[in-house]
Design a protein around this nucleic acid. Structure first.
Lengths: 200, 200
DNA sequence: TATAAAAAATACTAGTAGGTATGTTTTTTA
DNA sequence: TAAAAAACATACCTACTAGTATTTTTTATA
């Protein structure tokens, strides 16, 4: 295999395994040794590709988490159709689509935010980028709804966007405490009530 | 000093310092050594009063966190007055009352939930208790509102309760990423919009 | 006031953490 | 095909981790 391809493959493998382990066991409490054991590689390989654990953490945030939020929560907003329907579908369907694993361990982005969002500026900024992108995409959709007449004119799109994101991330955490989906069903019903209010 | 009093004082000191350090730096990443250094006591004292770190963690959850949520978010719900006003005041005033430290580090309960809510059943259950109490208190208030005619009859109190809690906990995390209170203002405005919908 | 018991201090263990120094293997290139 | 460079492996270092064993100090009690 070409050296460049092989090297890139190794780096991606480390990144992917790291994401999984951070998601399952937390960032700070997952050691470089543990990561490299799952990749069947050694520490030498790790420190050849990444400067240190911090650089890996930032890579997981700006590559894995960013992509996950984009595909799951932002891209679905950019379709044509009724704005309120898109909102309800995006938030509800996303929740329904989660595996047991993903329900148990919450939102990987929210986990990072709560674990290291107040730890170092570099992490803070990388995570902020994700939320800002999400918020902006929601605002854009809500403004389209106002233009099309499906969303009330007198409500602040930014406020609705932030409230929607907050509730979603919040319930992803709270669900960790329960063994059933009752809390998710209640969330979805609570979301519906909210969307009724912003509908024109 | 009486032995019993002195002993209880020491145990409380360890508990209080632990809460502060867990809040600031996380549970898993705060060592028993670090805790005992701030108390000016030694490891011998710690392991005399607590079986292990897990027991301490559970004590912080069921004593410190429980009390904090009760005083800040449950007790204010149990006053007489218009239900919608009580809800708006409780959630908004609480946010406004937070110090810079508390804004920076989010909600200590939510931090525990996201860090170890999926780690061990014992933690899960202790944390679940807090959320259940909060949820129950909100449902009780909303049901009173329905009886009094200030809250719409056809909305599920449990759903509204869960959505309110989720959004509150969610924004406490997200605020960590920002250096300003803009996100909190947007949350509060988004909350207002929600409460308009459930008002009769 | 001697003795027992509780509270706390000291010294230690075995295991894990991030990171480094150096060696070996593989691939590229001249 | 030999030398250079990149990819990866091995061995190790220092600092820190939860927890234990033992000793000293303080307090209660007979």
């Amino acid at each position: 295999m070409l050296q460049e391809q092989k090297s890139e493959f190794t780096k991606q493998t480390i990144l992917n395994e790291s994401f999984k382990l951070f998601y399952k066991n937390g960032f700070k409490t997952t050691s470089v040794d543990t990561i490299m054991k799952t990749t069947k590689l050694t520490k030498g390989a790790f420190y050849h590709h990444y400067k240190n654990k911090k650089e890996l953490g930032l890579a997981v945030i700006s590559l894995k988490l960013q992509e996950r939020v984009f595909k799951g929560m932002i891209e679905p907003l950019q379709q044509p159709g009724n704005v309120v329907n898109i909102l309800e579908n995006t938030f509800s369907e996303r929740l329904k689509s989660f595996s047991l694993h993903d329900k148990k361990h919450g939102c990987p982005t929210n986990n990072f935010i709560n674990e290291i969002g107040d730890f170092e500026t570099a992490y803070q900024m990388a995570l902020k980028q994700i939320i800002d992108n999400w918020r902006d995409a929601l605002i854009l959709l809500l403004e389209r709804g106002k233009t099309e007449g499906s969303i009330k004119q007198n409500i602040s799109s930014a406020s609705v966007a932030v409230y929607l994101i907050s509730a979603f991330e919040g319930v992803r955490g709270i669900r960790k405490l329960y063994d059933t989906d009752v809390i998710l069903d209640e969330y979805m019903s609570g979301l519906s009530i909210y969307l009724q209010q912003i509908k024109h």
